[in-house]
Every structure is written in structure tokens, then in C-alpha cells.
Design a protein around this nucleic acid. Structure first.
Length: 439
RNA sequence: GGAGAGGUGUCCGAGUGGUUUAAGGAAACGGUCUUGAAAACCGUCGUGCCGGCAACGGUACCCAGGGUUCGAAUCCCUGCCUCUCCGCCA
């Protein structure tokens, strides 16, 4: 959610930037709702004041007939005003939520994902002296993926991932966890990228896989039931990303600045209905209703938010480079970063089986847009001199980014396939493969 | 899942219908004293919203949402959460 005061002060900018993101919003009608809401609030508070004054005048004594009559009159007035105020606030909040976050100035303006800007390409598309297969062909031949039986059990777009492919998944997860929780590696990444951020390691988290409606909604990430699975008998939704259940961890809390940054690396199974993608990417495990994922989430001060975002991208690049999978970095344009984001980066991995780069990672910088709804704040000491100190409470900035989902498995299988049908395990994963270097 | 007891500020904890701007204590921070520290003493010590340049004023918030009342932290209802016992269970 955007700050209404910012919208009041910059209505034209908000209108323009929302449109750059492809959002149809009506800032002027929002501001009208804001005005009538505030007028009603003032009136309501005036009546409440009269009520409080009367109650105080009565005190412990028995109220007179006249006082009771007055009180009843005020109560009736208040009931009417409060109802109007409630309706006005509800309408106001509904419209305010439709205003997306403002893109940062460096985010390229674009109409669709086609206008994302490739900011970097690392490695060359892998060359083969044989015709490379796609991951689905390879996995079927090896018995690594069983979608037919999964369809029998759970329906389309589910999979049994088996044997060495399952092992490879856990190796990848372990590799990610080891990097993210290792301060020395983080220091190296920070130094190599010239970043000015804390080297505090990430804390490994296994979060709940579900969240309540109001909590999920506060993350600004809850989609409609067409997109997200809702439990039938409980007020709970299955998460569509670990980020969705880690972001609201500090809901309603005021953190101390000394606790920041809070860095979490969470492992969870994510669930997505993938409505509107029927027929797309049906082969293999590229797009499933369920997938396991390791995800970064962090809470920082506003001052550190952007550097934190850059750190997450740098970590993603480090992981990809260590795997030696060719990739490119995309600066997402205004149309593609998503409503809550101020900026966003995708990393696309080279998939020889599709002969193109496909998205395997994303990194989201959300500034204070989520934190305002979640009311996750930080108490900062701004001035601390003898005889004088001032504390300030600010919204935190949130960042999230993929460490590894299941898609990198596709990249590994396809890039490291050999003529004999086997897969060479990337060297950095050897320690996690129980001695297997070839699958 | 069944039965019972609870949920008050950073923490402990009082308050069960009306000067609650929530007692008291602890922690924290500033000061006095001290060579320094401790102790003692003095002071500060919630958040949101509305109005105001500001000082400040108003209002709401005692888990959440409803209700009763002239008046609710306090009474009633519902939900959530915690604890104890039972049941079940990786």
C-alpha cells in the first residue's frame, strides 16, 4: 500500500507511474474519497468528544434524566456517523489498495515483459557435439519424473520427482543454504560487487506453508482463488512462495534498529494454480502446481533497502556462476515488476533443450509498500547526544529473491547432459551428492 | 477433537462499570553525586489517525470483531492464541 500523504502531495506522478506499470487507477477520485473520509472523521470525533465530556461530568454520581437523554441523543448521532465513516474508510481503502508501488527512477519504462532490459549475460550458450535433449526427454529415459501417476493421484501439473533427480534437488538446496548462512562467502560477494551492506548471514527457516486471509492479504501478494489454493474448511491459503509466509513474520511489530537487517532463507513447498497458463510449458517440471523452493527474505531500514536488493542479485549470480550454468540478468521494466515492487530483476538460465533463456530466479525490492500494510516498523535513534535523544519510528523495507527453485534442476540436466545420456554433476554439488559425480 | 484456566505497555503485574491522561515494580535512556563504576536520588519512557507552521489540541487502541450502557480494560457473544489435563499422532 502506498502512503496516502505521498499521493496527496504527488497526485500527477502517482497517476503517471501507475499507468507505466499498466494499472488503471483514478487518483483524483481517490483524493475525493480521502477528503470525505477525513471530514467524516472530524465530525465523528467531535461527537465522541461531547460524549466523553458528558460521561466525565456524570462521573460516579447518578446521571440525571436530562443527562441520560443527552447521552442517548449523542449515541444515536454517533451510531449514524460511525456507520458513514466505516463505509467511507472501506471504500477509501479499497481504492488505495489498487494503487501500485512507484517504480524507482532507474526502472525502464515498458509496456510488457518484452521490454525488460538485459543488463548482463554471463557465459555462452552451451555447445554440444550431439543433439541436446530437453529435461523431460532425459528424465523420462532415466525414470526421474513420473507425471502420469501424479496425475492419477493429484491431477495435471503434479509430478513424482524420483531417484537421482530428487537427490540433485536436495544437493542444490544444501548448496544454497551453505552459501547463504556463510558469512565469509557473503563478505566475498559484498566485496566483489562493491556493496555497502552488512555481511550478517541469513537464518535458515522452515516456515508454515499456509497463512490466514488477513495476514496473506497484508503481504500484498494474495491473488484471487483462481491463482492461489484456499483450504475449504479453514481460513487458510497455501503459500505460493516462501516469501509470502516469511514476509508477515513481523506483522505489527516495532523492531529495534540493532536487530536489522533481518535475513531469512526459507525452504517451503509452494502451490500455484497457474490459471491462464493452460497448454504452456506442459512438458516436464517447468511449470507445476507444486514445487519446492529456497527463498531469501530480508527486512532493512529504508536507507539499506536498495543495497540489500543488489546483494540478493549478487548472491543469485554467485550461485549461478558457481554452478557454471550460463545465465543473463534482466532489469525488469515497469510493466513486469508487479504491483508491490519498486524494482525487480530476473535471472534467466540458458536451457539448451528449449534453445533459449528461461526465468529461473527473481528478485523483488518492495520498499515500504508491504511494510505499510503489515505494520512492520523499526525504531531508530536519530540523535543521541548527552542530554538529548530522539527516536524515530519508520516502516522497514522488504526484499525477497529466489535462491533455488526446481527450475535450476532443468538447467543443470540440460546444460550438463553428455552424449551417453548421463549428466555430469556440477562440481560445487559434489559434496552433497553422496559421492555421485555423474548421474 | 473433549474439559478447564487465561490473554493488560519492552517485561513482570494491579485494576472487574465512572477523575484510567492504566497503579506499582523492573529494564532502558538522560542527569545529580563519584577518580571511575555500583548504589542512591531526580527526570524521561506507547502507537495510529484528524486538525495545526509549531507549541499543542482532539480521537481511537488493554488479543481481534460485534453487543449491552448516559458511560466499558472491566459486563455479554463470537473468533484467535497460550497454558493444564484427557484423547490422537510423525
Amino acid at each position: 500500500m502506498l502512503d496516502i500523504r505521498y499521493i496527496r502531495d504527488n497526485p500527477k506522478e502517482v497517476q503517471t507511474k501507475a499507468e507505466q506499470k499498466g494499472y488503471k487507477v483514478d487518483v483524483s477520485s481517490l483524493l475525493k474519497l480521502d477528503n470525505s473520509r477525513r471530514e467524516l472523521q472530524t465530525k465523528t470525533e467531535e461527537v465522541r468528544q461531547q460524549r466523553n465530556t458528558l460521561a466525565e461530568a456524570v462521573g460516579k454520581t447518578k446521571p440525571s434524566e436530562d443527562q441520560i437523554a443527552q447521552g442517548k441523543e449523542l449515541k444515536a448521532q454517533l451510531a449514524e456517523l460511525e456507520e458513514k465513516l466505516r463505509a467511507a474508510e472501506e471504500e477509501f481503502a479499497k481504492v488505495l489498495k489498487t494503487i501500485p508501488n512507484m517504480p524507482l527512477d532507474y526502472v525502464p519504462v515498458g509496456q510488457s515483459e518484452d521490454e525488460n532490459v538485459v543488463s548482463k549475460t554471463v557465459g555462452e550458450p552451451t555447445k554440444f557435439d550431439f543433439e541436446p535433449k530437453n529435461h523431460w526427454e532425459i528424465a523420462q529415459a532415466r525414470g526421474w519424473i513420473d507425471k502420469e501417476r501424479a496425475a492419477k493421484v493429484a491431477g495435471a501439473r503434479f509430478a513424482y520427482i524420483k531417484g537421482d533427480l530428487a537427490r540433485l534437488h536436495f544437493a542444490l538446496m544444501m548448496f544454497g543454504m551453505d552459501v547463504l548462512t556463510n558469512e565469509d562467502i557473503l563478505k566475498k560477494i559484498i566485496a566483489d560487487n562493491g556493496l555497502k551492506v552488512s555481511s550478517k548471514p541469513f537464518t535458515l527457516v522452515m516456515p508454515p506453508a499456509v497463512a490466514r486471509t488477513d495476514v496473506y492479504d497484508a503481504t500484498c501478494r494474495l491473488n484471487k482463488e483462481e491463482q492461489t489454493y484456499k483450504l475449504a474448511d479453514d481460513d487458510l491459503w497455501l503459500n505460493a512462495s516462501a516469501e509470502h509466509v516469511m514476509a508477515p513474520m513481523y506483522l505489527g511489530e516495532i523492531l529495534d534498529e540493532s536487530e536489522l537487517p533481518i535475513r531469512l532463507v526459507g525452504y517451503t513447498t509452494a502451490f500455484r494454480r497457474e490459471a491462464g497458463t493452460y497448454g504452456k510449458d506442459m512438458e516436464g517440471i517447468f511449470r507445476l502446481h507444486q514445487f519446492d523452493k529456497l527463498e531469501m527474505e530480508s527486512f532493512t531500514t529504508a536507507d539499506d533497502g536498495l543495497e540489500e536488493h543488489k546483494l540478493m542479485v549478487a548472491i543469485q549470480e554467485y550461485l549461478m556462476s558457481e554452478l557454471k550454468v550460463p545465465y543473463r540478468v534482466l532489469q525488469k521494466c515497469t510493466a513486469d515488476i508487479g504491483g508491490p515492487n519498486a524494482a525487480g530483476v530476473d535471472i534467466d538460465s540458458w536451457l539448451p533443450g528449449q534453445n533459449k533463456y528461461r526465468e529461473t530466479h527473481t528478485a523483488d525490492y518492495i520498499t515500504d509498500y508491504q511494510a505499510r500494510r503489515m505494520q512492520t516498523r523499526v525504531r531508530r535513534t536519530m540523535v543521541n547526544e548527552p542530554g538529548f535523544q530522539a527516536a524515530k519510528i519508520e516502516l522497514v523495507h522488504t526484499n525477497d529473491a529466489t535462491v533455488f527453485s526446481q527450475r535450476p534442476l532443468i538447467a543443470i540436466i540440460e546444460n550438463f547432459q553428455q552424449a551417453d545420456g548421463t549428466i555430469a554433476v556440477p562440481e560445487v554439488l559434489w559434496p552433497y551428492m553422496s559421492g555421485k559425480k555423474v548421474l
